[in-house]
Design a protein around this nucleic acid. Structure first.
Lengths: 224, 224
DNA sequence: GATATTCTTCAGGAAATCGGCAGGAAGGTC
DNA sequence: GACCTTCCTGCCGATTTCCTGAAGAATATC
């Protein structure tokens, strides 16, 4: 899952990023409204966490900009304490939810999940496909009942594939969503990672699940 | 366990906080209704202790606010007057229990435990996992029948791990629940605490129970 | 108020992981 | 079947992450 954090205070931003990272999600940080707006409308984020108190262009402006282009982009606002009018304004401008500072990270996480569930994004705790099973709560993976231990990046990659079974995922898209990088073509990080993942979840089994589409990318699906 | 105390009188609040702290629980204090309501609905508390006599927004208002969002949040009321009408009103508004001032701390503690047992939040006073056993009443810990003495924080950490055996607990979550702080990554308090706990409950035994998940956090579980 | 315990920060070292490389294999095209 | 492109795969250095002991600060205990 990819998240955009628009927050000018470095400590808060770092705290949020770390939290999402531990959950296996990727978070980008924008430290002002202009950068935030730009990333928000060009990037492909599952959810945007937006602080309303920003230098220069504030969160309200960013929110309006986002809404004018992407009406269905999930946005959660962070507002300062005891400002009821702010909350109301945020919801009127189209925020999906808000959180009052200071807050515990788990509370933000709960709201993010709640929001995505409302949007029907696949974000359950346990995902299954064929005889493959991945439990995000326990951070564990099974194939045909056997537990498989994965390195962090292998896990993130598999979790991403499991979100879109049967769909072709290009290297560019994978690099974006799993590595948070712009894939320029002269790196084989994705290939190598797929290799490592295959070694653990495909090599020991006769029915392969990860398939290569030459010139395109990879797909997770059952084939006979 | 995390407790929210909403109480405007500093002496009473401090007394309660100290009492819970000695039990190994973490207590936050809110000194007025507005802050209390905010913390109650955004924080993640196992139980809320709510004084009904508060300046400005009173306890009734707070209780209604809580109930309108979290119907299953355990709430215990503190009332100054032993008036039947107050008790009735509290229970009608959805309080789980009430206590008339002045009261002994042990009385409050007993009701908290009783309430949580009804809610199955904490299954029992004695938790067991593998050959590990902790007695939440006596604050004692055994591994393979041998008594182990833990420092307060070591105990709190272990108690938290024991509440979620097999589940991955991120540093952020642990810092939130055991330290009541926002973990920003610049500190290794959790690591060090885990180290000290390991020294006592894992180092002397061959089967380790606390395992590290790189980049994520820790998990308490049996492995072979 | 003194002593003892406990907690946090710091820093060095260890370990797992990751990304690039390069040679080889496989797939596609004519 | 030859040729070219794309992908696979083992290895190694670099990096990140974690472990661990020690020391000073904080807290509790007497």
């Amino acid at each position: 899952m990819k998240i955009l954090i628009i927050e000018d205070e470095p400590k808060t931003a770092a705290f949020l990023k770390k939290g999402f990272s531990e959950e296996g999600d990727i978070a980008d940080i924008a430290v002002n409204g202009v950068d935030g707006q730009h990333l928000a409308v060009t990037g492909n984020y599952d959810v945007i966490v937006l602080d309303v108190m920003l230098p220069q262009r504030d969160g309200w402006w960013v929110l309006q900009e986002i809404r004018s282009r992407r009406t269905d982009q999930p946005v959660i606002l962070l507002t300062a304490l005891d400002a009821v009018s702010q909350r109301v304004r945020g919801l009127q401008l189209g925020a999906d939810d808000y959180l009052v500072k200071p807050f515990a990270f788990s509370e933000l996480l709960a709201r993010v999940h709640n929001l995505l569930r409302r949007r029907n994004v696949r974000s359950e705790d346990v995902l299954r496909y064929a005889d493959l099973e991945i439990d995000s709560l326990r951070h564990k993976v099974w194939r045909a009942g056997e537990a498989i231990s994965l390195a962090p990046q292998e896990y993130r990659l598999l979790a991403y594939l499991m979100r879109f079974p049967g769909e072709v995922l290009t290297r560019t898209r994978i690099a974006e969503q799993v590595w948070d990088m712009n894939f320029d073509g002269d790196s084989n990080v994705v290939d190598v990672a797929v290799r490592r993942l295959r070694r653990k979840i495909d090599d020991p089994y006769s029915d392969k699940l990860i398939h290569t589409l030459r010139g395109v990318g990879y797909v997770l699906e059952t084939r006979r």
